[in-house]
Amino acid sequence: MTSDMSIASLVLEASFVVQLIMLLLLGMSITSWAFIFQRNTALKSAQAELREFEDTFWSGADLNTLYTELSQRDNVFGSSLIFCSGFKEYVRLRKTSGIAPEAITDGAYRAMRVAMSREVDELETRLPFLATVGSISPYIGLLGTVYGIMTAFIALGQVKQATLQMVAPGIAEALIATAIGLFAAIPAYVAYNRFSTKVEKLENAYGNFMEEFSAILNRQSLASRG
């Protein structure tokens, strides 16, 4: 076994199984980083959309005008989509005779609930993958380490005189698998926790808006029937 202890040489001289595990972990790391950047952009857009919509909605804008403006956009998402779904259902039910005001409000609320569920599902896209990478990457790396150390000691047992110089490269190349596993797991785990917190805050904000908007619709329904 060579005494060259550079990381590149250790990776190149590792056994096929250890190299395969390293390649798998490297692929998982690259994929998770791509998802991290993509989710970070998506969540920032959702937060900016929420702030912009709430500023417009609570500024006293006319609901019909706001709905018309939002429905004409090419890409409606987040709280804007929730508002459009609820207001559209509210207008449709109001045109139907014989429906109680409470039923109109409940119908609008259910429409907003469906829209919110879809938006939250979209925000949570890729998060399960990050959670999986964060949880299993260390174990995959540990598997490569165990296999590499086992191979090194098997080879060591075939020589009459064992020295540290002989066993060190084998153990070092095996430990690289654990290092790569941690390199893949730590960013994915941190990103998953951070993004999950952001999604939870957005979901709470959507839910609060739905409750407040439903109260407004209920008052309008009662006033119109009165």
Rank of each mutant, 00 (worst) to 15 (best):
K44C: 09
K44Q: 14
K44H: 07
K44M: 04
S45P: 05
S45I: 05
S45V: 08
A46D: 01
A46P: 05
A46S: 07
Q47L: 04
Q47T: 14
Q47I: 07
Q47C: 03
A48E: 15
A48C: 05
A48L: 05
A48M: 10
A48K: 09
A48H: 13
E49W: 05
E49Y: 05
E49Q: 10
L50M: 10
L50A: 08
L50F: 14
L50P: 06
L50N: 14
L50C: 08
R51I: 14
R51M: 10
E52I: 01
E52Y: 03
E52T: 11
F53T: 01
F53E: 08
E54T: 08
E54N: 10
E54G: 03
D55G: 02
D55Y: 06
D55E: 13
D55R: 09
D55W: 04
D55M: 03
D55V: 02
T56A: 11
T56M: 06
T56G: 04
T56D: 15
F57Y: 12
F57D: 01
W58E: 03
W58R: 01
W58D: 01
S59T: 12
A61P: 06
A61Y: 07
A61W: 04
D62E: 13
D62K: 07
D62F: 04
D62C: 09
D62T: 12
D62V: 07
L63G: 07
L63Y: 12
N64W: 08
N64K: 09
N64H: 15
T65E: 14
T65F: 12
T65L: 09
T65Q: 13
L66F: 07
L66T: 07
L66N: 02
L66C: 07
L66M: 08
L66W: 03
L66R: 04
Y67W: 14
Y67C: 09
Y67N: 15
Y67I: 11
Y67L: 15
Y67Q: 15
T68L: 10
T68M: 10
E69A: 10
E69Y: 09
L70C: 02
Q72N: 14
Q72C: 09
Q72K: 11
Q72E: 15
R73S: 05
R73Q: 14
D74I: 02
D74T: 11
N75Y: 12
N75R: 11
V76T: 03
F77C: 05
F77E: 15
F77R: 13
F77K: 07
F77L: 03
G78F: 00
G78L: 00
G78P: 01
